[in-house]
Design a protein around this nucleic acid. Structure first.
Lengths: 135, 135
DNA sequence: TTGCATTCGACTAATTCAATAGAATTACTT
DNA sequence: AAGTAATTCTATTGAATTAGTCGAATGCAA
């Protein structure tokens, strides 16, 4: 049970992008420097965030990145989902065919509950709250 | 973010062991059959549970395994800990030296909170509750 | 002493993770 | 139009982890 680096870096990159005033975008290079993320690696992070519709690159080359929606409308889980499939702690709890004992297995419901708790917690915190917390 | 098979199998094995009447222990072979766990693999699971003090093998050969404490005193997290180190979603949140920006990083506190939520949830459910749920 | 149960450690195949490298593309600047 | 910096894409790598297997050693009991 670990949060992988893409999600961790992704969250940090989002904060960096969100913090920037909306007048000028922020360049990958600048994010990489401020957050100590290898530039080459960061581009796959940026690519994930862009694909998830969380950031946009307004114009071409030097325009930099902007946040795509208001920070209060972006949850940590949104960022998680930019890099990972829907959270599934154990396979059987989302796919009953996965396991023959599914009908009477008491662990299935438990893992499902834990899964929901984690997911709900990630959905409950927004980027806005993280930014407030920083001040 | 996955629960690995040792923890999953370990929980199922514990339920199997706890369900058995206290008069006779349960053999590895029996657990393996009832829970569809490869016998060879199960022995490392058993070893983990035994090492954590959750089960005991009373006598020698055919005596089988018994649960070491009352099911209401065994949490899911106890079983998790039989196979895994203390839950640490991200390294920096438990080791401030790990990261230079630790002092002002707003993600650190967030991951720490999520970490605690997950851990508390696993601590809050006991084996007893899972057995009740099965009935 | 034979057999079954248990225990231990080494090993492996497959997968995932984190990061790098290089090429291709884009579009601003002059 | 040419040069250049930024961006995007694809492929690759090395390390680590996971899930499981295998074989041998040990222990006890009939």
């Amino acid at each position: 049970m670990k949060i992988n680096t893409k999600v961790r870096y992704g969250l940090r990159a989002m904060i960096e992008i969100a913090e920037k005033d909306n007048l000028t975008g922020i360049l990958q290079k600048e994010i990489a420097e401020k957050q100590d993320i290898p530039l080459n690696y960061l581009d796959s992070i940026i690519s994930g965030l862009r694909g998830a519709g969380l950031i946009i690159n307004a114009g071409g080359k030097g325009s930099g990145y902007f946040i795509a929606k208001a920070p209060e409308n972006i949850s940590v889980y949104d960022i998680y989902r930019a890099f990972e499939a829907d959270l599934t702690l154990v396979q059987c709890s989302c796919d009953a065919n996965e396991c023959l004992r599914s009908d009477y297995c008491p662990t299935k419901d438990y893992w499902f509950m834990l899964n929901k708790t984690i997911k709900d917690t990630m959905k409950a915190t927004t980027l806005y709250q993280l930014l407030e917390n920083k001040k």
